[in-house]
Structure formats: C-alpha cells, structure tokens
Design a binder for these strands. Sequence first.
DNA 1: AGCACCACTTAGGAGGCAAAAT
DNA 2: ATTTTGCCTCCTAAGTGGTGCT
Length: 645
Amino acid sequence: MNDEEQEIEYKWWLEQKSDTSVKWQTLSHKGVVFPPPYVPHNIPLVYSGQKLLLEPPAEEIASYFAQMLDTDYMKNPVFIKNFFREFQIILRECSSRHTIEEFSKCDFTLMYEHFQRIKEQKKAMTKEEKDKLKKEKEAIKASYGVAFLDGRKEKVGNYTIEPPGLFRGRGEHPKTGCYKRRVQPEDVTINIGKDAQIPEPPAGHHWKNVIHDSTVSWLAMWKDNVNDNFKYVFLAPGSSLKGQSDMKKYEMARNLKGCVDSIRKTYTADLRNKDMAIRQRATALYLIDKLALRAGNEKSDDEADTVGCCSLRYEHVSTEEPNILVFDFLGKDSVRYFNAVPVDDQVFKNIKIFKRPPKTHNDDLFDRLNTTVLNKHLQSLMPGLTAKVFRTFNASITFQDELRKHTPKDGTLQEKLSAYDKANRRVAELCNHQKGVGKSHESQMEKMQDKVLSLKYLRRRYIEQLRQVEPKMKRKKAELFEADPELTDDWILKYEIAITKKDRERIVNKFDKENAERKQNKEKALLKSDLKERLGEVIAKEKLLEKGKIPSVKDFPPMKRNATADKLLEYIAKTDDRIKTAKLQMEDKDENKTMALNTSRLNYLDPRITIAWCKTFNVPVAKRFSATQREKFRWAMDVDPDWEF
DNA sequence: AGCACCACTTAGGAGGCAAAAT
DNA sequence: ATTTTGCCTCCTAAGTGGTGCT
C-alpha cells in the first residue's frame, strides 16, 4: 500500500451503518478476464493402437483428461464414465462418423507426456522469463483486480472466468468428470454502476446482460453448465463490503452469547414436548449447539450424498446405552464426521424414539423438521438468528475460553504460540475441519519415530556406562535397567549399521578433501595407512556388525569419557526430557496432519479475539495472521487488549 | 408447503514459493 | 547446493439461507 492510499483509508468500522440492503451508490470496474483460447497441440490419441489426430474441440477435452492421468480420479468409474460420454458428444459434434466407441481402447499417454514436458519447460524457465510472466500477471491484476465502490478503490477477488476442464466433484458426486465448458462473454452478466463505463467484451462478442443492481455485491455472474449453479465475481475478502458482513456475522454471534442461556433453557424444556415436531426441533438444536453440526439443507440426487443436522438419516446415528450417541456420516465436502458423545438423557431417549420402527435405513431421523422450519423458529428467539450462528458462536467462545485457560502469562513466545494453536485445534476439532494426509506423512512419522528410538538408545548407553562406573546402580536404580520393548535389537542393529556407514563416509570425505588441499599446496599426500588409522574405531565396529552379531552396548566406547555417576544420571534425565518432547512433537504432528486450523481461523474465530490476545500477551499479530489475513481483518486491528467476545 | 431461483459464506486441495534440512 | 518441508494464495466446489411464486 502506498502513502496516498494509506492517507485516505476508509475506516468503515468506525461508522454506524444500518441499511445493508443497498451495497453501493456508485460502482465501476473493468469486467472479467477470459482464459486464453485453446491452442491445439496436434498430439494424437492412440485408439486401438492407432494414432488418431482429433479435431481441436475433441483434442481439448481429451487433453483435460490426459492431464489427470496421474490423479486418483482415474480410479473413479463415475469420473471415467461421465468424461467418456461427454468426450463422445464432442466427437460427434466435430464429425458425425467418429470411430471412438470404447474407453478401454483409448490411450491418452502421448498427450499426458506432452503436458509433462510442458510442465518441465515451465519449471526450467529462466529467471527473466519468469519475471516477465509475473509482470504481465501483475499488469492484469492492476486493472481487472480493482474496482471503485463509492469512489473508493477496492480489490476484486476472482476476476478471471473459470477455465474449461473436467468437473472435479468431491466424494461420490454423480457428475464428477463432466465437461465444464468454456464460458463465453455471451454467458456473462455484468453488474456495474449506472454512470460507469461498461467494460468492453472481447472483440466480436457481447455480454449476456448488463445490469445496475446496487442491492447485490457481485460484479459479474454466469451459470455453470455442469450443475446449473451461479458463479459470481465478488470483491476480495479484504474489501470493505466483505469486511462489513464479516463483522456483522461476529456481532450476531456475540448477540447470541447474550441470549444463549435462555435459548438453551427453552430447547431443554422442549425436549419433552408432546408435539413431536417441537421435540425434533429441540433435539436438533441441542446437537447443533453442542456438537456444532451444520444445519443440513436438503440435497438433490445429482449431488454427493452428504448430510448435516436436519438431514441426518436413520443410519447416521446409533445409540449406545446408557447415553452415548455415535455419529458416523459424511458432511460437507464428504468429510467424515465420526464421534461418540455422551448426551443429555432426554436427547438420548428422543433419538431412540425418532428411530423407532417402522423407521429404518435411509429414512430421515428428523422427519418433521427441515432447516427452514428450524431457522423460522430461531428467528423468533432472536432476530437474525439462524443455525449457522451457533457454529460461529461456539467456535469463537470456545477459542476465547481455551486461550484464557492455557496461555502462560510469563511463557516464552513459543509457548504462547503453541497455546494459541492448541486452542485453535480445539475449535478445528469441534467443527470437524480436516485435511487430507499428505503422501509423505507416513515416512515423516517414521523418521520421527526413529529419532525417538535413537534417543532411547542413547539413554540406554548412558545407563550402561553408569553401570560400568558404578555397578551398585543396577540395584539402586533398578527402574533404569528395565528393558524398553520399543527399543528392539533389530532396530539397534539397523541403526548402528546406518550410523557406522555415515561415520565412514564422513571420515573418508574429510580425508579426500584434505588430500586434495595438500595436492593443491604441493604438499605430501596422506597415505592409505593414515586413512586406516582414522577409520580405526569404525572398522572395529564394522567387523562386529558384519558378523550379524547384535552389538552389545558394552562393545562401544563410552558416551561421555570420564563422566561421574552423578553426571551420567544428569545426562539420563536430560535425555528423558528430550524423549518426552520428541514424542510430543510426534503426537502433535500426527494430529495436525489431519486437522485444518486455517478454516476456523478464517471463518469462525472472531479476529478480535486474536488481536486482543496478541496485544495482551505481546505477540506480533503477524505470527498468526498472514498478510492477506491481516488485510481481511483490518476492521479488527484497533481492538482493545481487554476486548471480550 | 414446496418449488425455483438467487446471493452469499465456508471448505479442502493444488500449486507456488521460501525457509529449513540435508 | 539441492532436496524437502511447510506455509500461503488461489481456486472453485459445496454449503447456508433468503425471497417470491404457486
């Protein structure tokens, strides 16, 4: 941000704005960027062993498929089926008599390899080439990435039209693999101020429509051909418009804080209501409040089968006496929600009632309830209250409580930050925010386990030395001499072989280097016998290891020469600590691998909690909010250290 | 009540880039 | 110096929830 912009920064959050239905008085922008047109590469498809050159439109869709050859989508028969059907449609559009009838006879690898080469070329670009590309991108951003709202400069979020490709539906989406066709200017509606200059559509084209609707915030809109969904171009998350609604969302959640006690009382009473519709409503609300479940709108058959609270079915909740509910269902994005929780006795009874025969598999658990009914009721308890407010409220309040409980006042920065992460993780857990486990996770965990074992081994060797220094210890400190089942002889052998190999390499390398230096300085070279001498200990160890004999700790030189028993006990205690931290790190990593902290930080945690916390505990905000997050949360930056959610 | 339609927030993954590890 | 890792940004799918009509 330059000085000029800083001077005129509009602090909208200092103003009282009541009417949010009108979003702007004037609005101007440059419209949208279209992805570059398709450029044919003339790489053939191999069909039944025959090279087949495709017409450009067919080549294009085939290329989108070829580029996904190394993804898991290839294992999804629905994806393949949908793609192939649409591929054939395009083929037919190109020529009435194409010969491609069977997917199994198609070989896309030539195209795949072509795109791999392109990827590599892109990687191998020189710095200048990359810089040039970057500059071009920035130039586009400077014009299309900016809008003027009531005369103020604002960033636009997604000003590029989504490029064509194969629809990547998540989970078991029935339409995954369908062809997402190229969006034409004729598909796009522009929303812009009456007096603003209408953006020029690409040459030879026209917009579908140009409107001047100040009650909506979008700048452009089109409909996606696969799911018939609306796609919008909005302002960026850091814009005033988005900021205002973000702040409004958290203010609504804080409002709920004020009346949640009475709402809880009400629904707790309603759990026993004779009217089953009310009883279902109360039970669902209990779950939404306690477990932060999503509302659960109805979905159609051409979407993935996922559910939220109101759409839970018979098979998604099971009961375990005396009061445990076991949830197992796919939620948003087909993320599994699996949780066994003890619940209020009446809730437990109710669920059993709602599951009574003739209700069975596939039937709605809450057959008398949907999100509209629920939200109507919530509206009557508090203006503006809907099911999703509970998620925001519970996430933020949990976060604030956890932070207060666990931040060490006099801790180090690192300790404070990990207290923050811990609180953040609690929320991610509550909201079931997960992420996929990366390919390398297992090997990373193995590495860490190796580190733990090597520390344990070190500990064992200290103990052995201790025994040698003071044999009495074996009786006096018997607990030290207990065998650790994790530290197996097999592992020790492998470990010793590995470090001995490394030791040898290190010594040989150093030797070679020294000799090279000597050569340059015209000095006498070191002899083979010198090397042998240096390798003395290594060679002795190698001999032992070669025999396949599992070495005894006694066979190695002491860890700390001339150490006293007291000193050794100290080392052992220190190693114990290191083992503990390494294990903790491991557990931390394992948990963090599946837990997405950012989703809650971005969407559920009132940023003012974080900012106030940072101010109170003297933590730089940048430690937990990235640059874009700081921009998004600018409205929260001025908050007092003692601000409370 | 049930729908079609619309506008907006929330979500995980891909990919790029810089820092850390080797 | 190169590879690995981890974080950030971008992308767009997948939710929520409102309105207006029948």
